[in-house]
Structures are given as C-alpha cells and as structure tokens.
Simulated assay, not measured.
Amino acid sequence: MVSSVDRRDIDIKTADGIAKAALFGAGGGAKAGVILYMDAFGPRPALYSMAERLAGHGYAVQVPDLLYRNAPYGPFDAKTAFVEEKSKAVLMAMIGGLTQEMTVRDSGAFISALEATGIKGPIGVVGYCMGGGRALNAAAAYPDKIAAAASFHGGRLGTDAPDSPATNAGKIKARVYVGSAGVDGSFPPEQSARLAQALREAQVDHIIENYVGMQHGWCVSDHSVFDVTGSERHWKRLVAFFGETLG
C-alpha cells in the first residue's frame, strides 16, 4: 500500500443535478474502480482517509455526495449530529428525502464517471451505514457493471420493503460481503436471516459476518463508537474481498 495517492474533486452530472465527488487513485494504472457510498454525515476527512487507504491498494476510488440535492449542508459532527436536536432534525429530513431509487438512479452516473477516467472492467462498491443498502441495491441495478458489493453496519438490509436488498437479491450477480455490528437495531438477527435466505435462494456468492462487540458505526474513525481493532478487521476483510474479486 502506498503512503499517499492523488485526489481530484469532480462534478458528476445526474438526472437531478450535479453531485460533487472526490476521486482518489485515478491518475493512471488503477486495476479497478470502486465507489464508496457514504454514511449519513456526508463526505468529510474521515471518509476521504478511508478512500485514500483503499486507493493505496491499486483502486480508483470515488466518494460521491449522495445528499447533493440538499447542498450546501453541514458539516456535521458524526459524534454529536444525532445527539443535538437541531442537527438531528436536519439530518433526518435529508435522509428521509433520499430514496433508494434516487441513489440507484444516481449510481449509473457514478459508474459512468469512473469509466470516463479510463477504468475498464468490473467495479466494486462498498457502503457504510445508510450507504450499505445503497451499495447492495446498486449491485442489483447494474449487475453487468458491479462485480463486488460490500456493506458495513448497513441498516434495513433484510426487510420486506420493495427497496430492500433482500427483496432485490435475485437481481444481484456480484459477490456480496456484509459485515454487521454485534448488536444493531437497524439490522437485527431476523433481518440478517432474511437477507441470507434471499441471497442463498438467488445463488449469490455471499458472506454475512457478525462483528461481535462492535456497535453501529465502528468502522469510521470519527464515530463515537469507532473501534480500532474492529476497523482493522474490516479492512482485512474488505481488501481481501476486493482483491479476490476485482484483482
């Protein structure tokens, strides 16, 4: 892994406007492209650091602003945003207005933007928190493009809603990895079981792994529940998963 990689800030034209994104490691020679789907608090240094680390393994990594329809907004402090009533109300309204269908539609533009940098071949996606389900749904919507899809502490992955990844499992051709927090109200055991059954029935190559002792948000360094040991374990799994699938 290299110590640093190049970063470019780009604008991605979507059906609904312009989504700003940061692009790491696309300066030439990237072996594959990856889209990193953010958590609820928006693009920020913690996520950019993660994208840079992943790019150091030879990938061109794009971090799009999923909430661009509300821009400008924030910045939000991941440790306090859901504790303070004012910021919580703003965030909940923004997240509530961002449907899975919107992100799925946007993902076509995200993929095109990666390919415009010269990336050829299969693409990987990884999402955290609210981005986890969106990464899996992107894989369902673009099965000929996305070969590997990972979710960490993603919520509502196994509901019976039409926009649940479990409901859309039959459309997924990618390999799937799901890392769940040990105790997570947004992804309880019954949802995990439903998602596992849906993926098995769809014959999707998948792993669902329970990170015992970790709390929702443990992977991202600016979260109050960030866990160094658990985060490093997530990195080991993610790098191996992408390495086996994307090269």
Rank of each mutant, 00 (worst) to 15 (best):
M130R: 02
A181R: 09
E190T: 12
A181D: 03
R134D: 10
F110Q: 12
V125F: 05
A109E: 10
A141N: 11
Y142K: 03
F110M: 14
Y177E: 14
V178K: 06
N137V: 05
S112W: 00
V178S: 01
T117M: 00
D184E: 05
E115H: 13
G127K: 06
F110G: 09
Y128V: 14
K120R: 15
G121M: 07
I146S: 07
D160K: 15
A116T: 11
K145Y: 06
P188F: 00
A166I: 00
A147F: 06
M130C: 00
A193W: 01
P122I: 08
P143W: 11
E115Q: 15
Q191F: 04
C129N: 08
D163R: 03
A109S: 15
G118A: 13
S186R: 10
T167K: 12
A148Y: 10
D160T: 15
D184S: 12
A140K: 12
D106R: 08
V104A: 05
Y177T: 10
P165K: 08
A141G: 09
M130V: 15
P165I: 09
Y177Q: 15
T159L: 12
A166H: 08
Y177P: 04
A113L: 09
D144L: 00
S192A: 15
T117A: 01
A139Y: 11
R134V: 00
G121H: 08
V176G: 09
I119K: 07
S112G: 11
A147E: 06
P165S: 01
I111P: 07
I123Y: 07
G158H: 09
A139R: 08
F187H: 13
A139H: 11
G127V: 01
L157W: 06
S164E: 03
R105D: 14
Y177V: 11
P188I: 06
A135C: 02
P162G: 13
A116R: 14
A169C: 07
F110W: 13
F152I: 14
L136W: 04
G155L: 04
E190V: 05
G131P: 03
V104R: 14
N168I: 02
S164A: 14
A139M: 08
E115F: 03
G127N: 05
P122E: 03
F187C: 06
P143F: 10
A150C: 13
D106V: 09
D184A: 11
G154H: 07
S107R: 02
A109M: 02
Q191W: 05
A147I: 02
A148G: 09
G118W: 09
A135L: 08
G124C: 06
G127D: 00
I119E: 10
V126R: 03
G132T: 06
I172M: 15
K120C: 02
G121P: 04
P165V: 06
F152N: 07
V104Q: 13
G182S: 12
S151N: 08
V178R: 11
G170Y: 02
A174F: 10
A148V: 08
N137Y: 02
G158W: 07
V176A: 12
G108I: 07
S180K: 09
G179V: 01
G158C: 04
E115W: 04
I119Y: 00
G170I: 04
G132M: 00
K173M: 00
R156N: 14
A113T: 04
K171T: 01
Q191T: 02
S151H: 11
V125T: 15
A169W: 01
I146T: 05
